[in-house]
Nucleic acid binder design. Structure first.
Length: 493
RNA sequence: GCCCCGUUGGUGCAGCGGCCUAGCACGUCGGCCUUUCAAGCCGGAGAUCACGGGUUCGAAUCCCGUACGGGGUACCA
């Protein structure tokens, strides 16, 4: 447990749609902030002009909102450290870079990309590790200024120690050490005047008084660079928490191949944010006992960094589906119906276009109980409810005929069923059941035989919600018409 | 190549030196319920705790090595 409020940030780079791994990181940030009464800050790291993607910032915000991760400072809500876009915080980075140059911790470099590429190629072919060779370490100021006037690109590099070790404490992994000899002078200011990630986030985390840095494990090996920059600037390091990566079921990096990897894809596939929240919380963390289904508040209460796993978390879509089903079943009827309405109305994947819009909300509320516990994802509803909304279904004759029956006996049974249909009063499940149970025994049929034929006749499907509830919902007229149609189908084919 | 991290049934997680004849969940198989499918309930199969050495009275748990997996090694984050 952490004593005192934390300040944590989620700092995505708007280079594409937000990935599910990013949401998990943001979730852990958020949990920590809410648990300790601290602040969760959203900061946009848009220092890479080449990879900037239009719409990515909107996607990040929309994703966080859908998952219920509200930020206390950042875009749209502002805050004391405004701006929360790195592209608008240039002066912080340039003055930090100047200080580093002034103290000799960093220096300017006018090596061209071509030279660096050649250097790298030579190192690789010679079997050496790639890295900057330090050509500009002691170049006189005038030479660099001259290059700048010539329009040559000039960057700022950290002067890294040639030997020694740097080590830091990671909450998840403990003491982690690196040999400085293999860390070459890295760029902190690019030639376009933008800082690199290494400089920018260190400056901002300090400026924004971030206490805990939670990020993916892929960052652990660049942490020594961040320590070096902090030392150069004379600022204190935050607490580092490197979260285990999320891998697919085949233990490779999560990607489109594993199904949805984009944060909002889950919304579009009919998952509930509460289910994803719960599921994602368990990716790299566990409460210590066998509890799995937990609501937001319970997770906020039980979350703890020292229970974060140090081995990768595997994303199991089957388990997510199961959990989503659990959350769907826990919803109230009207709540589910209201969630289903937009899904059913969707022109793509919703009910057929022939069903007039808007879809009747009351009707959906009546039908929801019939599919409630059969649903794992909201987007399964249109398929399950379709036959209630269309005028006619087309039953397959082979499916109407049940085991140990033939066409003739089935037709005879359906004729009787159709006949009884007119006399059922009121036309409700309970009455229907007693009428048709009686019919089955009169005909010498097993209940399953009669009901099976009727089910296919009325719904057009072999698998459907309980027959009599379904019939009551379809109504007397509809049931009669559909049974007539089934008899026809059997007779003409 | 080099550096860093990891390794418990098909899968996810629990286990933090004796309570482990290794627990829970997903999946799977069987049964009950039953008009189909679900849901629910009951039960089963499934792990020499990656491998090899140590330390210890005692190791899934600590140490070393090997194998395998992952991450990093940019004027990307």
């Amino acid at each position: 447990m952490i004593e005192g409020p934390v300040r944590v940030r989620f700092a995505p780079s708007p280079t594409g749609m937000l990935h599910i791994g990013g949401v998990r990181t943001a979730l852990f940030d958020w949990l920590l902030a809410r648990q300790t009464g601290g602040q969760f800050i959203l900061r946009i790291e848009d220092t890479d002009r080449a990879r900037y993607t239009e719409g990515a910032v909107e996607d990040i915000k929309e994703s966080l909102r859908w998952y219920g991760l509200d930020w206390d400072e950042g875009p749209d809500v502002g805050g004391p450290a405004e701006s929360y876009f790195q592209s608008q915080r240039g002066s912080y980075y340039s003055s930090a870079a100047e200080r580093l140059i002034g103290s000799g911790a960093a220096y300017e470099c006018d090596c061209t990309p071509q030279r660096l590429a050649r250097l790298r190629a030579a190192q690789q072919s010679a079997g050496h590790p790639p890295g900057y060779d330090g050509r500009c370490r002691n170049r006189p100021r005038e030479e660099i200024d001259h290059s700048r006037r010539q329009g040559l690109p000039v960057v700022v590099r950290m002067r890294t120690p040639d030997r020694g070790r740097v080590s830091f404490h990671d909450v998840v992994r403990g003491e982690v050490g690196f040999d400085l000899a293999r860390l070459t002078d890295f760029v902190i200011m690019k030639s376009d005047g933008m800082p690199t990630y290494h400089l920018a986030h260190v400056v901002d985390d300090h400026e924004m008084r971030i206490t805990h840095v939670l990020r993916g494990e892929e960052w652990i090996s660049s942490t020594p660079r961040h320590i070096l920059i902090q030392r150069g600037l004379g600022i204190e390091a935050p607490v580092y928490v490197h979260l285990p990566l999320i891998l697919g079921k085949d233990r490779s990096k999560l990607s489109k191949r594993h199904g949805a990897d984009q944060a909002l894809a889950y919304r579009d596939q009919g998952f509930l944010p509460e289910a994803l929240f719960n599921f994602l919380a368990l990716l790299g963390w566990s409460p210590g006992d066998d509890t799995e289904v937990m609501g937001r508040d319970e997770i906020v209460g039980r979350f703890s960094l020292d229970r974060v796993s140090d081995s990768p978390a595997i994303f199991d879509p089957d388990k997510l589906s199961w959990m989503n089903g659990v959350y769907i079943r826990s919803m109230g009827n009207d709540e589910l119906a209201d969630a289903l309405l937009p899904v059913l109305s969707d022109p793509r994947g919703g009910l057929p276009e022939s069903v007039p819009r808007p879809i009747d909300r009351e009707r959906v509320r009546e039908l929801t109980p019939l599919i409630h516990e059969r649903l794992k994802r909201l987007d399964e509803a249109p398929e399950l409810l379709e036959f209630f909304f269309v005028d006619e279904v087309s039953p397959n004759p082979a499916e109407i005929v049940q085991r140990k029956m033939d066409r003739a006996s089935t037709v005879a049974a359906l004729r009787e069923a159709l006949d009884r249909c007119r006399g059922v009063d009121p036309f409700e499940a309970e009455v229907l059941e007693s009428v048709y149970r009686a019919l089955a025994s009169e005909l010498g049929l097993r209940a399953g035989q009669l009901f099976g034929s009727m089910r296919v006749a009325v719904t057009g499907r072999r698998v459907a919600p309980p027959l009599f509830d379904t019939m009551a919902a379809v109504g007397r007229g509809g049931c009669a018409a559909r049974m007539e149609r089934a008899i026809e189908v059997l007779e003409i084919s």
